[in-house]
Design a protein around this nucleic acid. Structure first.
Lengths: 145, 145
DNA sequence: TGTTGACCTGAGAGTAAGGCTCAGGTTTAT
DNA sequence: ATAAACCTGAGCCTTACTCTCAGGTCAACA
């Protein structure tokens, strides 16, 4: 199998495969013409990498896991260890994204009733500077919002 | 005001301010000693940048917005235009993060009952390869999962 | 006056996970 | 024979910073 064939069979871009080769995650043999040759072990490896990425592991994590397995050790303890901080980070990022989307939606909503501001030297853009668009600032006594 | 003073007064790192100077978002005067001098307009500008960042605008967006304002135009139309794709992207990222956290939590939960796998050549790590950890795969008729 | 420590500068590289582009080589089909 | 389609390694691009570097400045203290 060549790069594009593997790419198609595993639904990833050829660029991604080249990237994995570059960083050492995949180590295909090389044919006499210099082309990479991907056989079944490499294909399984790629599938594994994609599954691990889908669970939030970084390429470096995956490198570590694969190295465990290559040394004949069970990679499971490493896997159980590594996922904890990743999950923690993912939760934090999720919360940050929730807060961001909320701020943005609040902003867009409140902007519907605000006219465009004119330059005056006191502000740059009142839409942005106008309020902080947090939750608390929008549950108030507004009666016609 | 020098970099660290501005940094403290606006709760950002000095490195961030230097970065904004580097990319042209802030253009402080320079004293005879070569040091940057931040006066009130620059301070307001920084505050604006931070507020805009908090609403999900990229530094490039902010550059555009500030340039509008400098040309004496109202930046509001640009602001209304730019936030749409940003909001769209933020929602997509949010959904991706929700799905990711869910997959990760499902995985961690199911791993509690799974023993560490031993290397056998058929798999790299059964924890990761074992199932796809999606929602559908976990509401089924499994009685001892 | 010398020196220390805290600050300043621009420039360059690093981060994550690829994407894109380049010049040059290979293979396949017409 | 030649053109299309593929291959290679290498290097730069993305985001919004962060870190490090070498060298310059400044205030205080001995």
């Amino acid at each position: 199998m060549k790069v594009h064939e593997l790419a198609r069979s595993e639904q990833v871009s050829a660029a991604t495969i080249r990237h994995y080769v570059r960083v050492g995650l995949l180590q295909p043999r090389k044919g006499s013409n210099g082309y990479h040759v991907f056989a079944e072990p490499e294909q399984r490896r790629l599938r594994f990498i994609r599954q691990a990425r889908g669970l939030g592991f970084t390429l470096e994590d995956i490198q570590t896991i694969l190295q465990d397995a290559e040394k004949g050790q069970s990679p499971c303890p490493t896997v159980r260890q590594l996922i904890e901080p990743r999950l923690q980070q993912a939760r934090e990022k999720l919360e940050a994204m929730q807060a961001l989307v909320e701020r943005m939606e609040n902003a867009v909503a409140s902007w519907q009733e605000q006219p465009d501001c004119q330059p005056c030297g006191d502000h740059i853009c009142l839409l942005i500077e106008g309020s902080d668009h947090t939750e608390q600032n929008r549950g108030g006594d507004a009666s016609h919002e």
